[in-house]
């Protein structure tokens, strides 16, 4: 009965943790990182050079996912490779690559929306609050909390993937996992709203009309911004965020093009007097 040593598993984990994207290209994305990470395991399980080369070939196909949550896939294939070396039936290149291909899409979705899209911005948001006045507390808080929690999480799911092997698939795409994921995403939506409310501030300088000061008789401007905020604070900001979202998700406009549109809106808006930051030296 062959068993992967702790040292090889840990080598495989750290290689993936470090190397998942170091040699990124659009052609093979994370394939080289994957092979580099599987190599210690393959070399330990199979004695001959020919066998090693053959087994490494299993990991030639394209691989790309959110690499941090993707640790679990590498763990799973380590478990599967061990079972295959012990002669388990039904584990062949096709089965392993079926699992890899089947998981990389859903995991990229979870990783992008939960880790990169929600967890990191929330940590950064807290760090921004701590940084006010130029305090180093903010960056230090982020460096420590993000790295400790993230590395712990990656090691945890790698080990879980190895333990469970193919059974881990249910843990990721099963119904309970779906319910949990959907609920976390509910939290994500509310936080994204709160982030927009806290950090984005788009104001117009349009003056609707002039009123008269009853005492002095001076003209005082009536700002559109104040009227809008009276109805729903920050509504103009919200409209802009929703416009960008609508363009990207419903009209399939790329983020770069939406940014270009913002450049145009900024220039046109200033020229017609809609925007005026009112800054001077």
């Amino acid at each position: 009965m062959k068993k992967i040593s702790k040292a090889s598993l840990s080598k495989s984990f750290w290689r993936w943790w470090y190397g998942n994207l170091t040699c990124f290209t659009h052609e093979h994305m994370q394939t080289f990182g994957y092979m580099w990470s599987m190599l210690p395991i393959i070399q330990e399980l199979y004695p001959t050079k020919e066998e090693q080369a053959e087994k490494l070939r299993t990991y030639y196909p394209f691989f790309n996912t959110e690499p941090q949550i993707g640790c679990i896939v590498v763990g799973i294939t380590a478990g599967l490779e061990e079972a295959r070396a012990n002669g388990a039936e039904g584990i062949d290149d096709e089965m392993i690559n079926g699992i890899r291909a089947g998981l990389m899409g859903p995991l990229a979705g979870i990783g992008d929306s939960l880790i990169v899209g929600t967890y990191i911005p929330v940590l950064l948001g807290i760090a921004l609050g701590l940084s006010e006045g130029g305090s180093v507390l903010g960056p230090i808080f982020y460096i420590i909390v993000w790295n400790i929690t993230s590395i712990w999480f990656q090691k945890f799911i790698y080990d879980k993937g190895y333990e469970l092997g193919g059974n881990a698939v249910e843990m990721i795409v099963g119904e309970q996992a779906m319910a949990f994921r959907e609920s976390i995403i509910v939290l994500g939506r509310i936080i994204v709203g709160a982030m927009a409310g806290s950090w984005v501030s788009i104001n117009t300088s349009v003056i609707l009309t002039y009123g008269l000061d009853p005492e002095t008789g001076d003209k005082i401007p009536v700002f559109l911004q104040e009227k809008l905020d009276g109805a729903f604070p920050g509504v103009l900001t919200m409209v802009f965020v929703l416009l960008c979202w609508w363009l990207m998700s419903k009209k399939k406009v790329s983020p770069v093009k939406v940014m270009l549109l913002m450049v145009i809106l900024a220039f046109v808006g200033v020229l017609i007097g809609f925007f005026d930051p009112g800054l001077s030296y």
């Binding site: 994204v192 709203g193 982030m195 990207m248």
Partner: peptide
């Protein structure tokens, strides 16, 4: 606004999900 919208896209599946976003916005702003 573009950055937030990219994020929003990753957590919104159907248009009615935006209710949570608007609610979160009001929590912070209002």
């Amino acid at each position: 606004a573009v950055g937030i919208a990219i994020l929003l896209k990753s957590v919104i599946n159907k248009t009615t999900d935006l209710i949570y976003f608007v609610g979160g916005f009001a929590l912070a702003k209002s």
